[in-house]
Design a protein around this nucleic acid. Sequence first.
DNA 1: ATAATTGATGCAATCGGTTGCATTTGCATT
DNA 2: AATGCAAATGCAACCGATTGCATCAATTAT
Lengths: 336, 336
Amino acid sequence: MSTIRDVAAQAEVHPSTVSRVFSGNAQISEATRQRVLEAARELNFQPNAIARSLSVRRTKTIGVIVPHVFDGYFADSFFPQLMAGLLEVCYERGYRLLVGGCDGYQDEHIQALDILATRQADGIVVTSSRLDVDTVGELRRHNTPLVLIGHPPAQHADVAWVDADNRTATRRVIEYLAQKGHRRIAYVGGDPDSSVVKERLEGYLDGMAQAGLDVQPEWIDYGYFAEDGGYQAVERTRRDEASAPTAYYAANDLMAIGILRGLRERGIDVPGQVSLVGTNDSPEAAHLSPGLSSLRVPYRAIAAAATHRLIDAIEKGEQPAGHELLESCLIERESV
Amino acid sequence: MSTIRDVAAQAEVHPSTVSRVFSGNAQISEATRQRVLEAARELNFQPNAIARSLSVRRTKTIGVIVPHVFDGYFADSFFPQLMAGLLEVCYERGYRLLVGGCDGYQDEHIQALDILATRQADGIVVTSSRLDVDTVGELRRHNTPLVLIGHPPAQHADVAWVDADNRTATRRVIEYLAQKGHRRIAYVGGDPDSSVVKERLEGYLDGMAQAGLDVQPEWIDYGYFAEDGGYQAVERTRRDEASAPTAYYAANDLMAIGILRGLRERGIDVPGQVSLVGTNDSPEAAHLSPGLSSLRVPYRAIAAAATHRLIDAIEKGEQPAGHELLESCLIERESV
DNA sequence: ATAATTGATGCAATCGGTTGCATTTGCATT
DNA sequence: AATGCAAATGCAACCGATTGCATCAATTAT
């Protein structure tokens, strides 16, 4: 592979001239520009992006760590939508996306740090925030641009973030169910250490309070985002059929499907006897029978907004700031 | 951010010694190692990966271009599975994944070239191969390691590749349908310029021939991988109900869903009057009613195998070679 | 005709590591 | 005491661009 110096020799100019021709921002006479371009073509020259990055201290790359902590992760619509949003904006703005895998929360933290500390990316979007690992704090110490998808933990309230209105949206779902006449509503949440789940739980409690309904502790269950978790939640919440919930809100569709299966096995009709609302509006939600009502969370838009925010900040040379809350929307189908 | 020279000064050694401590492969006395490590800790030093890459001419990164050419792309299970396979192996082997977006086939080609030519990645996995754009040829001229997911075009038979046994698998599905008594079987294919579709079509023809069945040209339709394409395929193939197909094979589940909708609107019962087999075993396939029989293509395993092959070659300093064909498996549900 | 200005290009230091080769040091051999 | 050897470290060139400053030529202003 030829370098800028080879081209310079061939075109009989100084390497810096070649550099200027390729990086655009400089005055070059049309004659030499042509000569350089011609030489470059002959030698099949392409500037080396790594060398350029070293020199300008910019990689035109943003990083993201994707956790593969539970099995359904890649199947659920969260991941594809996230990627779609990230890629869409990266592409639009001339960036690439550097994706690192990781193996559990602790490791996610390590990987993210590594990408930033070693300057492989100009900034990073952080997706999962766990309350028990201070990823955000560590990351900020490096002061590399950072945008969070999800709410920031309390001690980092000033970090930039974009999220769905989980709390409000969940409250609305509960109010909607209450308004349909349900008085015993269960919440099946996912991993209780994640902040999304905490927000949703707050929304649930808000909604119940708003509707003037009592909450039984056994109506709150964590299905850990997996289908089987939903299935088991049914078992746990229906020990006593007389006081069992008449409606379920599940924090993702996978769990909702598990709940549906659990109910069906007990001969409970949905929506006849029990109503069910899922979250994410996964592709399968529409095709279940009964069609699953689901809270559609605008993940793609969230990822896109976060990426814009990040790139804006990178290009201004500032730390990203501010936040956005995007609205979710309940898709009504037959399960209520 | 501190550099290797700062650490060297602090530890009173030569920069090259610091380098050796961090890159591991050299003999360093335990005493100086400790001194260097200590200095590094004090200065919060992390080696700069970009500088390292420039020097060693390796990025520990592999590239992939993901096309967002049609809408269902991110929803279909192909994309998440592909990413899962790529990431799994990259992570395992200490690589990162550089993802570039693109906008159509021509551009995919350009982006891939760019990643390689500018040395942003040590190798690349190419996913879509179109017969009308010689991406592979261009890419090979750069002789950077390259593995294809899918069959190579005829003129590049020696490039490394990994694929599903599309032709055989499709043939088997046709034989299976024929064996169930179907004599008029339709093929709804997707983009006819893509090589997958060509392979599937060959498999279809093989299967029909094998079963001694005639093929009518109007039974072959291209739904362009979208649900609506499937829907329209029903219209096109059922102008004359008397000679219309009694079974459909669709090259993805989205199209199968479209076909299902088309048939339902015409009051045709599945599987009572017409049978249907989709491809990919998307999450929704199981939850349709009737449950959609679907050919499960092991995309995740394919991506994983391709990545292994690529990294093996990179680390040996060779061009990847050879190929693998992974078996698909028909998941039987109620739609047949 | 001379000075001042502008435009185009060259020069050389720099970005932050790596690595082949040379040198020094410490220790074992004879 | 002299020699040989290996382990540890230093030296300096290099990876391939970028960029502030200097220089020189060609215009323009006076």
